[in-house]
Every structure is written in C-alpha cells, then in structure tokens.
C-alpha cells in the first residue's frame, strides 16, 4: 500500500505529510508536473503556498498536471486528503463544496486546537469515533470555510461536514464551525487543521495519526 504526497512549487508541509503517511504505509512524493499516479493507493495534498497562492489560494494548483490525475483518481473512489492549502486546492478543483476566505480577524493563526470528528464514515475518519475531539494544530490566514445558504444546507443535510472546531473555539469565523468537509461519497476529505503535524507525542499530540490510519484501514478492507 503506497500513499502519494503532492509537491507543488511553494508547498511546505509535504515532508511532514510524507512522514505521517510512512507511519501507516509506504509513501512517496509526487511532483506537480507528474502525469501518472501509478501504484498510488491514496493521495495527500499538503499545506503550503502552492504557486505562491497568487490570484487566489489554490486557484493555480488546481490546473497542475498531477491534479488532473487526482481528479480521475477521486472519481474512481480513491482516497484523497487535502490539508490546509490542499483543502483550498480541492475546493477550487470542485472536488469539495464551498470556498476558503480570509480569516475573520485577518490574522495568521498558529495554535493547537480541539477539532471534533463530525462524520466517522469517511475514508479518512473511519478510525475515529463521532464526536471525538482531536488535538491538532491550525496555522493559516485563509481558513474561513464558506458556502452560500442553499449549498450549506445541502452539505449539512448530506452529513458532509467531517470536522468542526470545538464549540466556542472557531478560530477563523467559518460557517457552522466547519473545520473540514468530505465529498458525498466520503473518499475525498479536506480540512484546515494539520493532522500531519500531530503524529508523535513528542510534538504534543498524536491524534492526527488517526486520519492516516483510517485511510490505511479503509484500503486494507477494500
């Protein structure tokens, strides 16, 4: 079983993501210009500032050759996780609903936070309990998830909110305290917090590992 971690010009969390994946499976970096995902069983799109975040966060990365392959991979039901900038890319690519806007307070946020698992039925949350709080860091400037009212209603109705910030602890003003979203099928998940930075007690928490274990478990069962 092999996880692939995308690297764009401007990515900066791909090495941590790779290390996190290596705790549960084989893993390798996939360069943004690569046009095949041969042998890859799960894809992680890491955090950072792909293409300098020029124009709009995630907007240009969405057209990278590797992303075209990720779109096909996701359509076949392959597990895809977008973290922070990766989440923004997945929203821009239309794989996940909604968009990410600048934080309500305009400030860059960097702190450990409690994130509640709102849906345990996705490919990336199967090893979690619904309602379980995971201690994971956030670090972003553009993390305020937004959807127009009718889309928000559909996302909530379908149970596509995968993660929420703990009550009273929403750092960026996202609608309904949304921290992460899945697609309808549950194989594509994106979140603003960084589970790849929380895989070892040495750095304060290993709760983030559960997302990677979830995908490995889902793949092993398939």
């Amino acid at each position: 079983m092999t996880f692939g971690v995308l690297r764009f010009p401007g990515s900066c969390d791909e090495v941590d993501a790779l290390r996190a994946c290596e705790r549960v499976a084989e893993a390798r970096i996939v360069w943004h210009a690569d046009t095949d995902l041969d042998g890859i069983d799960a894809v992680v799109i890491p955090g950072g500032f792909s293409y300098g975040d020029y124009l709009r966060v995630g907007a240009i990365a969405r057209f990278a050759p590797a992303m075209e392959r990720v779109l096909e991979f996701a359509a076949r039901g392959g597990p895809v996780l977008g973290i922070c900038n990766g989440f923004q890319v997945l929203c821009e690519a239309g794989l996940l609903p909604g968009a990410l806007l600048p934080n309500e307070g305009l400030r860059f946020l960097c702190r450990q936070i409690d994130v509640e698992v709102a849906a345990a039925g996705t490919a990336w949350t199967g090893a979690c309990r619904e309602g379980e709080a995971l201690s994971i860091p956030v670090k972003h400037t553009t993390g305020r998830w937004f959807a127009p009212p009718e889309l928000l209603e559909r996302v909530e109705g379908n149970g596509q909110v995968a993660f929420r910030y703990a009550p009273g602890d929403n750092p960026n003003g996202s609608l309904n305290d949304v921290a992460g979203i899945s697609n309808g099928r549950g194989n594509v998940v994106g979140l603003m917090p960084h589970p790849e930075h929380a895989v070892d007690p040495l750095t304060g928490s290993s709760d983030g590992l559960k997302l990677f274990e979830s995908a490995a478990r889902a793949l092993a069962a398939a």
Binding site: R56, G98, A99, F146, A147
Partner: peptide, 8 residues
C-alpha cells in the same frame, strides 16, 4: 475558470 471564483 481561473480568474474568478463565482461562489465568492
């Protein structure tokens, strides 16, 4: 397609 995100 690129310059604008019509959602926002």
């Amino acid at each position: 397609k690129l310059l604008v995100n019509p959602l926002i």
